[in-house]
């Protein structure tokens, strides 16, 4: 599966190199845009010292963990939302005749290596936050786990959004609201949102397990909403459940595919 992924991603990278100007512009833009989010956080903290009880470095830690997972997803899976184009134009047919998973083919469709700029930027922020906060090694093991779970949760959201396109062929924006919206939402400590919102993104759409719950554990803070301690460790469970649901939805979507007249 990984072999096929790499193969297709490499193919698209070579194909993109056929348009060198756009390739270069995308790389530069990727770097610039990625910096804007951090700038926003720094602007906030030039006016205040804490945000809902969190210091600047703690916020940067939460931003970093969520964003590494999100940027990885943006690079490796986000092309799934192009599926509406393929469904509408019928080019999805071509993917279905290949002996390769349609999920991999869609995820690698027009793969852009230039998006790695965002991943690097997020890693940089995370690295800074971890050093500045001087976090103990005994809790840092959670960081790779939460990034892994975050990656799976975001990927599952993209897959669900993609599967939805088989039914709502004309509404890619609905999906973007889910995927990019979730990415934005998890950039800040959940303490700034209302109790109802946090409940929703804990028990319905399990975004709290991307960085909020496990992040509290790493930072050694109690949950301002008072959830029990064991919730900090439920990330893998949430990721697994969501991934299974997404897989089922994708399968159903394909069975509902209608192709186009030709």
């Amino acid at each position: 599966m990984v072999r096929t992924y790499v193969l297709l991603a490499w193919t698209w990278t070579r194909a993109a190199a056929a348009y060198p100007v756009s390739f270069a512009i995308m790389t530069v833009l990727g770097f610039l845009v990625a910096g804007l989010d951090v700038a926003a956080i720094l602007v906030i903290f030039s006016n205040t010292t804490t945000l809902a009880g969190f210091t600047r470095d703690q916020v940067l830690f939460l931003y970093g963990t969520s964003n590494v997972a999100f940027a990885l997803c943006d690079m490796l899976v986000s092309n799934l939302d192009r599926i509406s184009l393929h469904v509408k134009s019928g080019t999805f047919d071509t993917m279905l005749i290949r002996p390769v998973s349609t999920w991999i083919q869609t995820a690698t469709d027009r793969f852009l290596i230039t998006r790695i700029g965002r991943v690097l930027q997020a890693l940089l922020v995370l690295g800074y936050a971890v050093t500045a906060l001087d976090l103990p090694w005994s809790r840092l093991w959670m960081v790779p786990v939460m990034i892994g779970c975050g990656f799976v949760i975001f990927s599952a959201l993209w897959t669900l959004a993609g599967a939805l396109q088989f039914v709502l062929t004309d509404a890619p924006e609905v999906s973007s609201a889910f995927t990019y919206g979730s990415g934005q939402l998890t950039q800040y400590p959940f303490a700034i949102y209302g109790r109802e919102v946090v409940r929703g993104v804990t028990y319905v759409l399990p975004l709290a397990f991307v960085n909020w719950q496990p992040g509290l554990y790493v930072l050694g803070l109690p949950d301002p909403f008072g959830t029990p301690e064991f919730m900090r460790f439920l990330g893998p469970v949430a990721a697994l459940v969501l991934a299974l649901l997404a897989g089922l939805a994708w399968r159903q979507g394909i069975r509902r595919y209608r192709s186009t007249g030709s």
Binding site: T11, R14, A15, A16, A18, G90, D93, T94, I97, S262
Partner: peptide, 14 residues
């Protein structure tokens, strides 16, 4: 093996 006369199954830019 499948061939669609109206649509290529090859990679457009390759």
């Amino acid at each position: 093996g499948v061939v669609f006369g109206q649509r290529t199954t090859l990679w457009w830019d390759l």
